[in-house]
Design a protein around this nucleic acid. Structure first.
Lengths: 232, 232
DNA sequence: CGATTGATTGAGCTTTGTCAAAAGCGGTGG
DNA sequence: CCACCGCTTTTGACAAAGCTCAATCAATCG
Protein backbone atom coordinates (compact mmCIF):
# COMPACT_ATOMS: atom_id res chain seq x y z
CA UNK A 1 0.00 0.00 0.00
CA UNK A 2 3.09 2.21 -0.03
CA UNK A 3 2.56 5.36 -2.03
CA UNK A 4 5.33 7.83 -1.41
CA UNK A 5 5.82 9.60 -4.68
CA UNK A 6 2.59 11.48 -5.07
CA UNK A 7 0.87 14.36 -3.35
CA UNK A 8 -1.85 12.03 -2.46
CA UNK A 9 0.25 10.06 -0.08
CA UNK A 10 -0.45 12.90 2.29
CA UNK A 11 -4.12 12.06 2.31
CA UNK A 12 -3.60 8.37 2.18
CA UNK A 13 -1.39 8.42 5.24
CA UNK A 14 -4.13 10.11 7.15
CA UNK A 15 -6.82 7.79 5.95
CA UNK A 16 -4.71 4.76 6.61
CA UNK A 17 -4.05 5.90 10.14
CA UNK A 18 -7.70 5.44 10.89
CA UNK A 19 -8.67 2.38 12.86
CA UNK A 20 -11.98 1.65 11.21
CA UNK A 21 -10.86 -0.39 8.23
CA UNK A 22 -14.32 -0.55 6.71
CA UNK A 23 -14.35 3.21 6.23
CA UNK A 24 -10.90 3.24 4.72
CA UNK A 25 -11.94 0.75 2.14
CA UNK A 26 -14.96 2.86 1.40
CA UNK A 27 -12.81 5.82 0.51
CA UNK A 28 -9.67 4.43 -0.97
CA UNK A 29 -9.58 1.78 -3.58
CA UNK A 30 -6.35 -0.06 -4.15
CA UNK A 31 -4.17 0.61 -7.13
CA UNK A 32 -5.73 -0.42 -10.38
CA UNK A 33 -4.12 -1.04 -13.72
CA UNK A 34 -5.47 0.97 -16.63
CA UNK A 35 -4.71 -0.18 -20.16
CA UNK A 36 -3.81 2.28 -22.87
CA UNK A 37 -6.77 4.23 -24.18
CA UNK A 38 -9.17 3.25 -21.44
CA UNK A 39 -11.47 5.94 -20.10
CA UNK A 40 -11.73 6.84 -16.43
CA UNK A 41 -14.97 8.76 -16.72
CA UNK A 42 -16.96 10.63 -19.28
CA UNK A 43 -18.36 14.12 -19.36
CA UNK A 44 -21.79 14.39 -17.76
CA UNK A 45 -21.52 11.28 -15.64
CA UNK A 46 -22.32 11.74 -11.97
CA UNK A 47 -19.22 12.24 -9.87
CA UNK A 48 -18.32 9.11 -8.01
CA UNK A 49 -14.59 9.34 -7.45
CA UNK A 50 -11.42 11.29 -8.06
CA UNK A 51 -8.38 9.56 -9.50
CA UNK A 52 -4.83 9.81 -8.28
CA UNK A 53 -2.38 8.96 -11.04
CA UNK A 54 0.18 6.43 -9.84
CA UNK A 55 1.91 5.75 -13.11
CA UNK A 56 1.38 6.50 -16.76
CA UNK A 57 -0.03 9.60 -18.39
CA UNK A 58 -3.68 10.56 -18.65
CA UNK A 59 -5.50 13.32 -20.40
CA UNK A 60 -8.76 15.15 -19.93
CA UNK A 61 -10.63 16.37 -22.96
CA UNK A 62 -13.84 17.55 -24.53
CA UNK A 63 -15.52 16.60 -27.74
CA UNK A 64 -16.22 19.78 -29.66
CA UNK A 65 -19.27 20.30 -31.80
CA UNK A 66 -17.48 19.35 -34.98
CA UNK A 67 -16.28 16.09 -33.47
CA UNK A 68 -12.77 17.28 -32.81
CA UNK A 69 -11.16 16.31 -29.53
CA UNK A 70 -10.01 19.30 -27.51
CA UNK A 71 -7.33 18.38 -24.99
CA UNK A 72 -7.79 20.18 -21.68
CA UNK A 73 -4.91 18.84 -19.63
CA UNK A 74 -2.33 16.11 -19.28
CA UNK A 75 -2.09 14.36 -15.95
CA UNK A 76 1.16 12.90 -14.70
CA UNK A 77 1.96 10.57 -11.80
CA UNK A 78 1.12 12.19 -8.47
CA UNK A 79 -1.58 14.38 -9.92
CA UNK A 80 -5.29 14.27 -9.36
CA UNK A 81 -8.04 13.96 -11.95
CA UNK A 82 -11.68 14.83 -11.65
CA UNK A 83 -11.82 16.25 -8.14
CA UNK A 84 -13.36 19.46 -9.44
CA UNK A 85 -16.53 17.51 -10.24
CA UNK A 86 -17.21 17.51 -6.52
CA UNK A 87 -18.81 20.92 -6.95
CA UNK A 88 -21.36 20.24 -9.65
CA UNK A 89 -21.55 16.53 -8.84
CA UNK A 90 -20.90 15.74 -12.48
CA UNK A 91 -17.72 15.39 -14.46
CA UNK A 92 -17.32 18.40 -16.71
CA UNK A 93 -14.95 16.62 -19.08
CA UNK A 94 -13.86 13.12 -20.00
CA UNK A 95 -10.55 11.48 -19.11
CA UNK A 96 -8.60 8.52 -20.42
CA UNK A 97 -5.20 6.90 -20.34
CA UNK A 98 -2.67 7.84 -23.00
CA UNK A 99 -0.55 4.83 -22.15
CA UNK A 100 -0.87 1.91 -19.81
CA UNK A 101 -0.77 3.14 -16.24
CA UNK A 102 -2.32 2.79 -12.84
CA UNK A 103 -4.51 4.87 -10.61
CA UNK A 104 -6.11 4.89 -7.21
CA UNK A 105 -9.77 5.66 -7.00
CA UNK A 106 -10.73 7.99 -4.19
CA UNK A 107 -14.36 8.05 -3.21
CA UNK A 108 -14.87 11.59 -2.16
CA UNK A 109 -18.27 11.77 -3.74
CA UNK A 110 -19.99 11.98 -0.43
CA UNK A 111 -17.88 14.11 1.81
CA UNK A 112 -20.39 13.78 4.60
CA UNK A 113 -19.45 10.14 4.84
CA UNK A 114 -15.97 11.19 5.77
CA UNK A 115 -17.50 12.65 8.85
CA UNK A 116 -16.15 15.12 11.25
CA UNK A 117 -13.44 12.83 12.45
CA UNK A 118 -11.48 13.12 9.25
CA UNK A 119 -10.50 16.74 9.53
CA UNK A 120 -6.87 15.95 8.88
CA UNK A 121 -7.67 14.12 5.69
CA UNK A 122 -9.77 17.05 4.63
CA UNK A 123 -6.98 19.48 5.30
CA UNK A 124 -4.73 17.38 3.16
CA UNK A 125 -7.30 17.30 0.42
CA UNK A 126 -7.61 21.06 0.59
CA UNK A 127 -3.88 21.46 0.16
CA UNK A 128 -3.81 19.02 -2.72
CA UNK A 129 -6.63 20.88 -4.41
CA UNK A 130 -4.74 24.13 -3.96
CA UNK A 131 -1.94 22.53 -5.93
CA UNK A 132 -4.37 21.47 -8.64
CA UNK A 133 -5.66 25.02 -9.00
CA UNK A 134 -2.12 26.30 -9.36
CA UNK A 135 -1.46 23.68 -11.96
CA UNK A 136 -4.56 24.61 -13.95
CA UNK A 137 -3.55 28.26 -13.76
CA UNK A 138 -0.12 27.47 -15.11
CA UNK A 139 -1.68 25.47 -17.90
CA UNK A 140 -3.80 28.36 -19.01
CA UNK A 141 -0.65 30.46 -19.02
CA UNK A 142 0.93 28.08 -21.52
CA UNK A 143 -1.68 28.57 -24.16
CA UNK A 144 -1.80 32.31 -23.64
CA UNK A 145 1.61 32.85 -25.18
CA UNK A 146 1.26 34.29 -28.58
CA UNK A 147 4.10 32.70 -30.49
CA UNK A 148 3.97 28.99 -31.15
CA UNK A 149 7.61 28.59 -30.17
CA UNK A 150 6.92 30.15 -26.81
CA UNK A 151 4.05 27.81 -26.17
CA UNK A 152 5.99 24.73 -27.06
CA UNK A 153 9.04 25.72 -25.06
CA UNK A 154 6.86 26.53 -22.07
CA UNK A 155 4.96 23.27 -22.50
CA UNK A 156 8.09 21.14 -22.53
CA UNK A 157 9.55 22.93 -19.53
CA UNK A 158 6.29 22.55 -17.67
CA UNK A 159 6.18 18.82 -18.38
CA UNK A 160 9.78 18.46 -17.35
CA UNK A 161 9.24 20.31 -14.10
CA UNK A 162 6.27 18.19 -13.25
CA UNK A 163 8.15 14.99 -13.90
CA UNK A 164 11.08 16.32 -12.01
CA UNK A 165 9.01 16.98 -8.96
CA UNK A 166 8.56 13.23 -8.65
CA UNK A 167 12.22 12.41 -9.14
CA UNK A 168 12.04 11.52 -12.74
CA UNK A 169 14.96 12.47 -14.89
CA UNK A 170 14.79 16.13 -15.75
CA UNK A 171 16.81 16.18 -18.94
CA UNK A 172 15.16 13.29 -20.71
CA UNK A 173 11.49 13.17 -21.44
CA UNK A 174 9.28 10.57 -23.07
CA UNK A 175 6.18 12.20 -24.41
CA UNK A 176 3.17 9.98 -23.94
CA UNK A 177 0.95 12.16 -26.08
CA UNK A 178 0.78 12.47 -29.83
CA UNK A 179 1.75 15.59 -31.75
CA UNK A 180 -1.91 16.02 -32.51
CA UNK A 181 -2.76 16.08 -28.82
CA UNK A 182 -0.01 18.56 -28.04
CA UNK A 183 -1.29 20.73 -30.89
CA UNK A 184 -4.85 20.59 -29.61
CA UNK A 185 -3.76 21.37 -26.10
CA UNK A 186 -1.70 24.38 -27.17
CA UNK A 187 -4.13 25.58 -29.79
CA UNK A 188 -1.80 25.33 -32.76
CA UNK A 189 -1.61 23.09 -35.82
CA UNK A 190 0.14 19.72 -35.74
CA UNK A 191 2.48 20.83 -38.46
CA UNK A 192 3.55 23.79 -36.38
CA UNK A 193 4.41 21.53 -33.46
CA UNK A 194 6.50 19.44 -35.76
CA UNK A 195 8.28 22.41 -37.25
CA UNK A 196 8.91 24.12 -33.93
CA UNK A 197 10.47 21.00 -32.50
CA UNK A 198 12.62 20.69 -35.56
CA UNK A 199 13.72 24.30 -35.21
CA UNK A 200 14.61 23.77 -31.56
CA UNK A 201 16.59 20.73 -32.58
CA UNK A 202 18.45 22.53 -35.34
CA UNK A 203 19.58 25.34 -33.03
CA UNK A 204 20.77 22.90 -30.40
CA UNK A 205 18.10 23.46 -27.77
CA UNK A 206 16.73 19.95 -27.86
CA UNK A 207 17.41 16.53 -29.15
CA UNK A 208 14.17 15.21 -30.56
CA UNK A 209 13.67 11.67 -31.66
CA UNK A 210 10.02 10.85 -32.03
CA UNK A 211 8.52 10.95 -28.58
CA UNK A 212 11.90 11.07 -26.91
CA UNK A 213 13.06 14.56 -25.96
CA UNK A 214 16.41 15.53 -24.50
CA UNK A 215 17.02 19.00 -23.11
CA UNK A 216 20.32 20.37 -24.35
CA UNK A 217 19.99 24.03 -23.44
CA UNK A 218 17.49 24.64 -20.70
CA UNK A 219 18.27 28.34 -20.17
CA UNK A 220 17.85 28.85 -23.89
CA UNK A 221 14.41 27.27 -23.77
CA UNK A 222 13.50 29.29 -20.72
CA UNK A 223 14.30 32.51 -22.46
CA UNK A 224 12.14 31.49 -25.40
CA UNK A 225 9.33 30.58 -23.02
CA UNK A 226 9.89 33.89 -21.27
CA UNK A 227 9.75 32.18 -17.92
CA UNK A 228 12.14 33.31 -15.27
CA UNK A 229 13.90 30.15 -14.05
CA UNK A 230 12.76 30.80 -10.49
CA UNK A 231 9.07 30.90 -11.31
CA UNK A 232 8.27 28.08 -8.98
CA UNK B 1 -23.26 40.10 7.27
CA UNK B 2 -25.57 38.72 4.62
CA UNK B 3 -23.72 37.25 1.71
CA UNK B 4 -26.00 35.29 -0.53
CA UNK B 5 -24.71 35.76 -4.01
CA UNK B 6 -21.37 34.03 -3.83
CA UNK B 7 -20.10 30.50 -3.50
CA UNK B 8 -18.51 31.46 -0.33
CA UNK B 9 -21.74 32.07 1.45
CA UNK B 10 -21.83 28.33 1.93
CA UNK B 11 -18.71 28.46 4.02
CA UNK B 12 -19.68 31.64 5.74
CA UNK B 13 -22.96 30.22 6.93
CA UNK B 14 -21.14 27.40 8.57
CA UNK B 15 -18.54 29.62 10.13
CA UNK B 16 -21.14 32.02 11.36
CA UNK B 17 -23.10 29.21 12.93
CA UNK B 18 -20.24 28.62 15.29
CA UNK B 19 -20.70 29.85 18.82
CA UNK B 20 -17.17 30.93 19.52
CA UNK B 21 -17.17 34.42 18.07
CA UNK B 22 -13.46 34.92 18.56
CA UNK B 23 -12.69 32.10 16.15
CA UNK B 24 -15.10 33.44 13.56
CA UNK B 25 -13.41 36.79 13.58
CA UNK B 26 -10.08 35.03 13.21
CA UNK B 27 -11.18 33.42 10.01
CA UNK B 28 -13.52 35.83 8.35
CA UNK B 29 -12.88 39.49 7.93
CA UNK B 30 -15.77 41.72 7.11
CA UNK B 31 -16.30 43.20 3.69
CA UNK B 32 -13.65 45.67 2.68
CA UNK B 33 -13.69 48.28 -0.02
CA UNK B 34 -10.92 48.10 -2.57
CA UNK B 35 -10.22 51.15 -4.74
CA UNK B 36 -9.43 50.80 -8.43
CA UNK B 37 -5.94 49.56 -9.11
CA UNK B 38 -5.17 48.47 -5.58
CA UNK B 39 -3.31 45.22 -5.08
CA UNK B 40 -4.57 42.36 -2.92
CA UNK B 41 -1.26 40.52 -2.72
CA UNK B 42 1.92 40.18 -4.66
CA UNK B 43 3.74 37.19 -6.04
CA UNK B 44 6.09 35.60 -3.57
CA UNK B 45 4.42 36.94 -0.45
CA UNK B 46 3.59 34.36 2.20
CA UNK B 47 0.01 33.18 2.00
CA UNK B 48 -2.10 34.81 4.66
CA UNK B 49 -5.60 34.83 3.24
CA UNK B 50 -7.83 34.03 0.31
CA UNK B 51 -10.15 36.66 -1.07
CA UNK B 52 -13.80 36.27 -1.94
CA UNK B 53 -14.86 38.87 -4.49
CA UNK B 54 -18.06 40.60 -3.37
CA UNK B 55 -18.25 43.26 -6.06
CA UNK B 56 -16.05 44.63 -8.80
CA UNK B 57 -13.61 42.83 -11.05
CA UNK B 58 -10.12 41.69 -10.13
CA UNK B 59 -7.31 40.17 -12.08
CA UNK B 60 -4.35 37.97 -11.31
CA UNK B 61 -1.17 38.44 -13.28
CA UNK B 62 2.55 37.93 -13.59
CA UNK B 63 5.26 40.35 -14.53
CA UNK B 64 7.26 38.78 -17.33
CA UNK B 65 10.98 39.18 -17.78
CA UNK B 66 10.55 41.88 -20.37
CA UNK B 67 8.37 43.93 -18.04
CA UNK B 68 5.14 42.97 -19.76
CA UNK B 69 2.15 42.14 -17.62
CA UNK B 70 0.72 38.69 -18.35
CA UNK B 71 -2.90 38.37 -17.28
CA UNK B 72 -3.66 34.98 -15.75
CA UNK B 73 -7.30 35.30 -14.86
CA UNK B 74 -10.17 37.68 -14.26
CA UNK B 75 -12.12 37.29 -11.06
CA UNK B 76 -15.78 38.21 -10.82
CA UNK B 77 -18.13 38.60 -7.87
CA UNK B 78 -18.61 35.30 -6.07
CA UNK B 79 -15.24 33.95 -7.08
CA UNK B 80 -12.22 33.23 -4.99
CA UNK B 81 -8.69 34.54 -5.40
CA UNK B 82 -5.46 33.14 -4.06
CA UNK B 83 -6.69 29.98 -2.37
CA UNK B 84 -4.23 27.90 -4.38
CA UNK B 85 -1.39 29.50 -2.40
CA UNK B 86 -2.44 27.26 0.45
CA UNK B 87 -0.31 24.53 -1.03
CA UNK B 88 3.05 26.25 -1.39
CA UNK B 89 2.28 28.78 1.35
CA UNK B 90 3.19 31.59 -1.04
CA UNK B 91 1.20 33.44 -3.64
CA UNK B 92 2.32 32.36 -7.05
CA UNK B 93 0.98 35.46 -8.76
CA UNK B 94 -0.13 38.99 -7.96
CA UNK B 95 -3.70 40.26 -7.90
CA UNK B 96 -5.29 43.68 -8.04
CA UNK B 97 -8.62 45.42 -8.60
CA UNK B 98 -9.53 46.50 -12.12
CA UNK B 99 -12.25 48.77 -10.80
CA UNK B 100 -13.45 49.79 -7.39
CA UNK B 101 -14.91 46.78 -5.61
CA UNK B 102 -15.08 44.93 -2.34
CA UNK B 103 -13.80 41.67 -0.96
CA UNK B 104 -13.89 39.49 2.11
CA UNK B 105 -10.62 38.23 3.45
CA UNK B 106 -10.65 34.62 4.55
CA UNK B 107 -7.85 33.50 6.80
CA UNK B 108 -7.31 29.94 5.79
CA UNK B 109 -3.56 30.23 6.11
CA UNK B 110 -3.48 27.96 9.10
CA UNK B 111 -6.02 25.23 8.56
CA UNK B 112 -5.06 23.58 11.81
CA UNK B 113 -6.56 26.54 13.60
CA UNK B 114 -9.91 25.64 12.14
CA UNK B 115 -9.69 22.54 14.23
CA UNK B 116 -11.50 19.28 13.88
CA UNK B 117 -14.80 20.78 14.79
CA UNK B 118 -14.99 22.69 11.54
CA UNK B 119 -15.35 19.75 9.27
CA UNK B 120 -18.45 21.23 7.66
CA UNK B 121 -16.62 24.41 6.79
CA UNK B 122 -13.85 22.32 5.35
CA UNK B 123 -16.25 20.33 3.24
CA UNK B 124 -17.64 23.55 1.91
CA UNK B 125 -14.19 24.81 1.16
CA UNK B 126 -13.44 21.61 -0.70
CA UNK B 127 -16.51 22.07 -2.85
CA UNK B 128 -15.68 25.69 -3.49
CA UNK B 129 -12.18 24.75 -4.51
CA UNK B 130 -13.58 22.16 -6.86
CA UNK B 131 -15.47 24.95 -8.53
CA UNK B 132 -12.29 26.99 -8.78
CA UNK B 133 -10.47 24.14 -10.46
CA UNK B 134 -13.29 23.78 -12.99
CA UNK B 135 -13.16 27.47 -13.62
CA UNK B 136 -9.40 27.45 -14.15
CA UNK B 137 -9.79 24.51 -16.52
CA UNK B 138 -12.38 26.33 -18.54
CA UNK B 139 -10.16 29.37 -18.68
CA UNK B 140 -7.28 27.37 -20.04
CA UNK B 141 -9.65 26.14 -22.69
CA UNK B 142 -10.23 29.68 -23.90
CA UNK B 143 -6.68 30.33 -24.86
CA UNK B 144 -6.28 26.93 -26.43
CA UNK B 145 -8.45 27.79 -29.43
CA UNK B 146 -6.43 28.43 -32.50
CA UNK B 147 -8.37 31.19 -34.21
CA UNK B 148 -8.54 34.59 -32.56
CA UNK B 149 -12.28 34.84 -33.26
CA UNK B 150 -12.89 31.59 -31.43
CA UNK B 151 -10.96 32.78 -28.42
CA UNK B 152 -12.79 36.05 -28.21
CA UNK B 153 -16.21 34.53 -28.70
CA UNK B 154 -15.45 31.90 -26.07
CA UNK B 155 -14.10 34.56 -23.75
CA UNK B 156 -17.20 36.72 -23.98
CA UNK B 157 -19.52 33.79 -23.50
CA UNK B 158 -17.52 32.64 -20.52
CA UNK B 159 -17.70 36.07 -18.93
CA UNK B 160 -21.39 36.27 -19.61
CA UNK B 161 -22.04 32.85 -18.09
CA UNK B 162 -20.11 33.73 -15.00
CA UNK B 163 -22.00 36.98 -14.54
CA UNK B 164 -25.23 35.20 -15.24
CA UNK B 165 -24.60 32.68 -12.53
CA UNK B 166 -24.92 35.51 -10.04
CA UNK B 167 -28.09 36.96 -11.53
CA UNK B 168 -26.47 39.67 -13.52
CA UNK B 169 -27.94 40.49 -16.86
CA UNK B 170 -26.88 37.95 -19.42
CA UNK B 171 -27.25 39.96 -22.59
CA UNK B 172 -25.49 43.11 -21.52
CA UNK B 173 -21.93 43.12 -20.33
CA UNK B 174 -19.68 45.88 -19.05
CA UNK B 175 -16.09 44.88 -19.51
CA UNK B 176 -13.98 46.04 -16.60
CA UNK B 177 -10.73 45.17 -18.32
CA UNK B 178 -8.91 46.98 -21.07
CA UNK B 179 -8.46 45.59 -24.55
CA UNK B 180 -4.81 45.19 -23.72
CA UNK B 181 -5.64 42.99 -20.76
CA UNK B 182 -8.02 40.88 -22.80
CA UNK B 183 -5.31 40.53 -25.41
CA UNK B 184 -2.73 39.47 -22.87
CA UNK B 185 -5.12 37.00 -21.31
CA UNK B 186 -5.99 35.42 -24.63
CA UNK B 187 -2.50 35.55 -26.07
CA UNK B 188 -3.33 37.72 -29.06
CA UNK B 189 -2.52 41.28 -30.11
CA UNK B 190 -4.63 44.23 -28.95
CA UNK B 191 -5.35 45.16 -32.53
CA UNK B 192 -6.73 41.70 -33.16
CA UNK B 193 -9.11 42.03 -30.23
CA UNK B 194 -10.31 45.30 -31.64
CA UNK B 195 -10.75 43.94 -35.14
CA UNK B 196 -12.49 40.77 -33.99
CA UNK B 197 -15.00 42.74 -31.97
CA UNK B 198 -15.60 44.99 -34.93
CA UNK B 199 -16.14 41.99 -37.15
CA UNK B 200 -18.61 40.49 -34.68
CA UNK B 201 -20.39 43.81 -34.63
CA UNK B 202 -20.54 44.12 -38.39
CA UNK B 203 -22.10 40.69 -38.81
CA UNK B 204 -24.67 41.39 -36.14
CA UNK B 205 -23.41 39.11 -33.41
CA UNK B 206 -22.68 41.85 -30.93
CA UNK B 207 -23.27 45.47 -30.27
CA UNK B 208 -20.00 46.90 -29.09
CA UNK B 209 -19.65 50.35 -27.68
CA UNK B 210 -16.38 50.76 -25.86
CA UNK B 211 -16.52 48.56 -22.79
CA UNK B 212 -20.23 47.97 -23.20
CA UNK B 213 -21.12 44.72 -24.97
CA UNK B 214 -24.56 43.54 -25.98
CA UNK B 215 -25.17 40.03 -27.18
CA UNK B 216 -27.35 40.01 -30.27
CA UNK B 217 -26.87 36.47 -31.50
CA UNK B 218 -25.76 34.12 -28.81
CA UNK B 219 -26.12 30.90 -30.81
CA UNK B 220 -24.03 32.48 -33.52
CA UNK B 221 -21.29 33.25 -31.04
CA UNK B 222 -21.52 29.77 -29.60
CA UNK B 223 -20.97 28.20 -32.95
CA UNK B 224 -17.92 30.40 -33.53
CA UNK B 225 -16.61 29.42 -30.12
CA UNK B 226 -17.44 25.82 -30.99
CA UNK B 227 -19.12 25.41 -27.65
CA UNK B 228 -22.33 23.50 -27.39
CA UNK B 229 -24.84 25.74 -25.61
CA UNK B 230 -25.34 23.25 -22.80
CA UNK B 231 -21.71 23.04 -21.76
CA UNK B 232 -22.47 23.87 -18.17
C1' DC C 1 5.02 -7.87 -44.73
C1' DG C 2 1.25 -4.97 -46.28
C1' DA C 3 -1.80 -1.69 -44.22
C1' DT C 4 -3.05 1.83 -41.28
C1' DT C 5 -2.00 5.54 -38.49
C1' DG C 6 1.12 9.20 -37.06
C1' DA C 7 4.88 12.49 -38.18
C1' DT C 8 7.29 15.35 -41.26
C1' DT C 9 8.03 18.27 -45.18
C1' DG C 10 6.81 21.53 -48.83
C1' DA C 11 4.00 25.23 -51.19
C1' DG C 12 0.56 28.65 -51.20
C1' DC C 13 -2.50 31.53 -48.94
C1' DT C 14 -4.99 33.42 -44.84
C1' DT C 15 -4.58 35.24 -40.49
C1' DT C 16 -2.55 37.83 -37.36
C1' DG C 17 1.26 40.50 -35.45
C1' DT C 18 3.89 44.86 -36.04
C1' DC C 19 4.44 49.53 -36.80
C1' DA C 20 2.56 54.01 -37.46
C1' DA C 21 -0.94 57.21 -37.30
C1' DA C 22 -5.50 58.89 -36.32
C1' DA C 23 -9.49 59.04 -33.51
C1' DG C 24 -11.86 58.69 -29.21
C1' DC C 25 -12.18 59.24 -24.29
C1' DG C 26 -11.49 60.83 -19.63
C1' DG C 27 -9.71 63.71 -16.57
C1' DT C 28 -7.63 68.30 -15.28
C1' DG C 29 -7.20 72.93 -14.89
C1' DG C 30 -7.89 77.29 -16.65
C1' DC D 1 -17.54 75.12 -20.33
C1' DC D 2 -13.82 74.44 -23.00
C1' DA D 3 -9.05 73.41 -24.22
C1' DC D 4 -5.56 70.40 -23.45
C1' DC D 5 -3.11 66.33 -22.27
C1' DG D 6 -2.31 61.49 -21.87
C1' DC D 7 -3.95 57.10 -22.64
C1' DT D 8 -6.74 53.71 -24.87
C1' DT D 9 -8.82 52.17 -28.93
C1' DT D 10 -9.27 51.94 -33.68
C1' DT D 11 -7.70 51.85 -38.36
C1' DG D 12 -4.55 51.03 -42.21
C1' DA D 13 -0.55 48.99 -44.57
C1' DC D 14 2.73 45.60 -44.62
C1' DA D 15 5.33 41.55 -43.32
C1' DA D 16 5.71 37.48 -40.96
C1' DA D 17 3.81 33.58 -38.80
C1' DG D 18 1.12 29.84 -38.96
C1' DC D 19 -2.83 27.24 -41.12
C1' DT D 20 -4.40 24.28 -44.90
C1' DC D 21 -3.81 20.98 -48.23
C1' DA D 22 -1.14 17.48 -50.27
C1' DA D 23 2.50 14.34 -50.52
C1' DT D 24 6.10 11.70 -48.44
C1' DC D 25 8.19 9.23 -44.83
C1' DA D 26 8.19 6.53 -40.41
C1' DA D 27 6.40 3.60 -37.24
C1' DT D 28 3.08 0.53 -35.40
C1' DC D 29 0.12 -3.40 -35.68
C1' DG D 30 -2.23 -7.20 -37.38
Amino acid sequence: MACSNCDFSEIQDVILGVEDVSIVSQILKRRQQVPKGEGLFRIGQPFHAAYAVKSGTFMSYLLLEDGEEQVLAFHLPGELIGIDAIKEKRYSYSARALEAGSICELYFNDLAKLGKSYADAQNSLIRVMGGEISQAQRQSLLAARQAADERIAAFLLNLSDRFNRRDFCSINLRLAMSRQQIASYLGIAVETVSRSLKRFQSVGLLDVSGKQIEFLDRPGLESIARISPSTD
